Simulated assay, not measured.
Amino acid sequence: MKIVLFTHPSFLGHKSMPRFAQMIISGMKEKGHNLTVWSPKAVFFKLSFKKPFLEKWLGYVDQYIVFPIQVKFRLLATGKETLFVFSDNALGPWVPLVKKRFHVVHCHDFLAQQSAFGLLQENKTGLSGKYYQKFIFLGYSKARNFICISKKTQFDLHALLSQKPALSRVVYNGMNQNFEPAKDSDAIREKLSKAFNIDLSNGYVLHVGGNAFYKNKLGVLQIYDQWANDFKIKVPLILAGEKPTEEMIAFKENSIASESIHFVNDIDDKQLQEFYQGASVMLFPSLYEGFGWPIVEAMASGSLVITTNEDPMKEVAADAGFYIPKKPGETEKLLDWKIVTAKELERIIQLNCEERKEAVSKSILRSKQFSAQGFVDSIETIYKEILENR
């Protein structure tokens, strides 16, 4: 196959999307396919003098004015048998350029569009954001073929589109890093304790994620604080990811467990793997997800996972996960939610050796359903099907 893969420009500094794209690149090339990457280059973006406002708008010029012109010229020299693959539905504005050629769009989540269209009350979008998300939607809605990373993402896609796609398939993400259980978890905890000057010798509650509203990082703090209030604290809380917001810092300072709450930022891939390996439990109470990478990564690392009793979290963790209700939007229901979730955290922390061993085995077994090779094999089959269905 001849494949052209559209990816996000490197100057945007994304992390998860480049890894996803690299999984496609490596997988297809290893299978002997001819793959070329098309992505905007920083032209006007370089003139921004690192000022966020200018970076944003000059980046748009590179992506939506300069790049489309370049694509039109490249298409003149690109064979009709070429398959054009979009690594993310957020690249929608470029889809109309090849809508009459063989193409497929990989879909991760539609949270930004749902927020902009008023479908997610927890997240309000400004006027410019609404226009931008409509711009993206109008682009990918011209596509005929889609591959979604979960059944939940596929359901959301179909709800947004005005007509059923010609092809719509679900292929779960494959792990693109080497996550595995630690041979000696005590040694891992000792290493992390020294590196971050935190006593992790008795284990810890871990959360991995950014500050986006749907990650519910404040909810993690609320659960832990309630747990500290209702039960004797046994292990600290580690929040790995972006730097905390002012709201999160204020919550920590006012918490009765303030000294046991630690924000850990700017860690490398190796340290992230070690944090997973040493965790007593990974707390992941997301409101929404497209897939939920940390769930699989934690399970593969031998950590137990407490997550929200909603898809796609349930879809991913299946019978290997431990579930809590979704955080309510109503203030009067919040206390009951915190009490219930704190009790579940205490229950998992208190599992005896035999129960924990059995639960860890189920987690590891479940994680094996999400292999990079399985992902590549599945999308290759779909790519060929699109080319064959002329």
Rank of each mutant, 00 (worst) to 15 (best):
L283R: 01
D269H: 02
R169A: 14
D230K: 00
G13V: 03
S168F: 05
L161F: 03
V340E: 00
G118E: 11
D377K: 11
T308R: 04
L58R: 06
D88E: 15
T381S: 14
F6P: 02
A240M: 06
E190S: 14
Q114K: 13
K50S: 13
G32C: 09
I261L: 03
G321S: 11
N197R: 14
G118V: 05
L206A: 06
M28R: 04
V61S: 09
L120N: 10
K243D: 10
W94F: 13
Y140A: 10
Y276M: 08
H103I: 08
F67A: 09
F213I: 08
P328A: 12
S10N: 09
L35V: 14
R189N: 06
A77P: 03
E380V: 07
D377I: 01
P236K: 11
D336S: 10
K31C: 05
P9I: 13
D199A: 10
S361G: 06
E310M: 11
I249G: 02
A21Y: 08
Y132V: 05
K357M: 10
F284P: 00
A77Q: 13
S48A: 15
E330Q: 12
Q222M: 07
E274F: 05
P236F: 05
Q70C: 03
Q273S: 14
K215F: 03
G126K: 12
L138K: 15
G27W: 05
R169N: 12
L304C: 09
L76F: 07
V305G: 07
A317F: 04
S286Y: 02
N389Q: 13
N145T: 09
S260W: 03
I233Q: 13
S10I: 06
G92Y: 10
E388T: 04
R19W: 06
L192F: 00
F86I: 11
L351I: 03
G59E: 11
I238K: 01
S286D: 02
E385W: 04
Q277N: 06
R144L: 11
V98Q: 13
A298Q: 02
E354A: 13
S115T: 02
P294Y: 09
L304I: 04
D225H: 04
P96Y: 13
S303A: 15
R101E: 14
D311E: 13
A279Q: 03
L304E: 07
D311H: 13
K100C: 05
D266S: 15
L91I: 10
I382P: 01
G129M: 14
R19V: 00
M17G: 02
V296C: 03
N254K: 13
A212R: 08
K191H: 13
A166Q: 12
A116K: 06
N254P: 00
I24F: 14
I69H: 05
S201W: 01
S286T: 01
E332Y: 06
Q22I: 00
H8I: 11
E247F: 07
K151F: 09
A143W: 06
E354S: 14
K232M: 08
K314I: 11
L97D: 07
F251T: 01
G290I: 04
K338V: 00
F20C: 11
R347A: 12
Q350T: 02
L127C: 04
I24W: 10
S286E: 06
E259K: 12
F196Y: 15
A279E: 02
K99I: 06
